[in-house]
């Protein structure tokens, strides 16, 4: 009898957890797409997208006069996309030219732009993404 009670208790707890999961998952999801897939699938304006795999086109970042809320262009080497940042947070320091960015927001198919309220940025030099040759090249560019 006692055994059944414990089993019952466990089932109740497990069911509660499961409900919590399902209810919460539905509220905070975004579909992860690469730039290429975004352009092929062109999801509706209201769908929340996490856009990965793009880098910031050098020189494309246009800050407002206070160095906030930039507009910039990202590219995957093939496609480009204009992005407007509307989020509240200060952008991470790693956000700069050539940075690999992950954006969250909505895609507007009509004018091929993206409104992002979250920007994650990974600086390519932070970890070992670049070959050493690239670094030497960059040093030479900087010197000339």
């Amino acid at each position: 009898m006692r055994r059944h009670k414990f089993t019952l208790g466990s089932i109740v707890i497990a069911a509660g957890l499961l409900y919590l999961f399902v209810a919460s998952v539905q509220q905070s999801t975004a579909t992860h797409l690469t730039l290429q897939n975004l352009i092929i699938k062109s999801p509706g304006d209201s769908q929340r997208i996490q856009l990965g795999g793009g880098t910031v086109v050098p020189g494309s970042i246009e800050w407002d006069q206070y160095h906030s809320r930039p507009e910039f262009t990202i590219t995957d080497g093939e496609h480009t996309l204009k992005v407007r940042y509307t989020g509240n947070a200060v952008l991470p320091d790693t956000f700069k030219d050539k940075a690999l960015v992950v954006l969250e927001g909505e895609y507007h198919q009509t004018n091929n732009t993206f409104t992002a309220d979250v920007v994650f940025a990974k600086c390519p030099s932070k970890y070992e993404g670049q070959s050493y040759d690239g670094h030497v090249q960059a040093m030479n560019d900087g010197n000339s």
């Binding site: 957890l17 919590l20 919460s24 998952v25 999801t29 975004a30 579909t31 992860h32 797409l33 996490q50």
Partner: peptide, 18 residues
């Protein structure tokens, strides 16, 4: 076939009651 990501709200919503 689509990567669906869940954000911080999911983690908070689930983990606060637990």
């Amino acid at each position: 076939g689509e990567q669906i990501t869940v954000g911080a709200p999911f983690f908070n919503q689930v983990n606060i009651p637990i």
